[in-house]
């Protein structure tokens, strides 16, 4: 009998393990939720998937760890590259994985416009609340008062609420979960890869950086997960988000779920109009 292996291993390149991440880094937990979803969907291999990432710790999730085609692109540009991949070969499932700094700060414009276009991409934002790879600077998602390398006296810039922002775009699917909500997060991955398999799908995972947030607070990774279990409150309707956040909690849940045609579908009907017009 072969030695039992962790369920994620069938989707990984064995030759690059162990991971490059810090001990206890939640990137691996996000991967587990995604792979568990894929396993439950019966996805045997990832040959029809393309993973695209930018720069940052979570951008190392796909490249080269995941056994699939992957493009590790420039800082902030993953969504743009992914858009090109999808349009040139719409048959592919294109998944972007990145951090809050990558996707929202330097790449914010691309994120916004991909959501506006309802571009057929699954974008996974691992929100670790800081710039971790460059050693703990302020991110657009850093909570108020938080001390970072560039806000040594406590952050005074109000953070952006990315999921809430994206609800008001044409995105088909917007969800936020904490890394502690493993089953709900897995369920969102399943929805975004099957039920809502078109249009722009955005899953935010609140996964504080182990080194520059959790250790800094003097906590262990396990303690942080227990803390998040209490701090993350599921809302049934987006009208409850503000109320939860006023109480200092993190609102989680599936904030938006629609089945509008995605960009690819819209472009195809546009192209057929173009062909008709040229025949007249």
């Amino acid at each position: 009998m072969s030695v039992a292996k962790h369920f994620s291993r069938k989707y990984l390149r064995e030759e690059v393990l162990p991971t490059p991440f810090c001990p206890g880094c939640f990137n691996g937990v996000v991967m587990n939720a995604m792979f568990k979803a894929m396993e439950e969907l019966g996805i045997e291999d990832l040959r029809n998937f393309v993973f695209v990432s930018g720069i940052g710790c979570s951008s190392w999730i796909p490249n080269p760890l995941i056994r699939a085609d992957s493009l590790h692109t420039l800082h902030g540009r993953a969504v743009a590259v992914a858009t090109g991949v999808k349009l040139a070969n719409p048959r592919l499932n294109v998944v972007v994985i990145g951090g809050d700094g990558d996707l929202v700060a330097i790449g914010g414009n691309h994120l916004l416009h991909a959501a506006r276009r309802n571009m057929d991409l699954l974008v996974v934002m691992v929100n670790n609340m800081v710039y971790a790879m460059t050693r703990g600077q302020l991110a657009p998602t850093t909570p108020l008062g938080f001390r970072t390398a560039t806000t040594p006296y406590g952050n005074f810039e109000p953070p952006i609420n990315v999921a809430k922002l994206l609800i008001n775009t044409n995105a088909n699917y917007v969800a936020r979960w904490c890394v502690s909500n493993f089953h709900k997060l897995k369920q969102s991955f399943k929805e975004a890869l099957s039920e809502v398999s078109k249009g722009f799908r955005f899953i935010e995972v609140v996964a504080p950086c182990i080194t520059y947030v959790v250790r800094y607070e003097g906590k262990t990774p396990g303690q942080k997960i227990k803390e998040l279990r209490e701090a993350c409150v599921e809302v049934k309707s987006i009208s409850e988000i503000d109320d939860v956040e006023r109480r200092g909690k993190i609102a989680v849940g599936v904030f938006k779920k629609e089945l509008k045609p995605g960009y690819v579908e819209l472009y195809e009907s546009y192209a057929s109009r173009a062909r008709e017009a040229s025949q007249k």
């Binding site: 393309v50 695209v52 493009l71 692109t73 420039l74 902030g76 540009r77 743009a80 590259v81 992914a82 858009t83 090109g84 991949v85 999808k86 349009l87 040139a88 070969n89 592919l92 414009n109 691309h110 416009h113």
Partner: peptide, 13 residues
């Protein structure tokens, strides 16, 4: 920035 990166993605596809 988006334009050139879209072109890069498309080329790989």
């Amino acid at each position: 920035l988006a334009a050139i990166n879209m072109v890069i993605g498309a080329s790989w596809a």
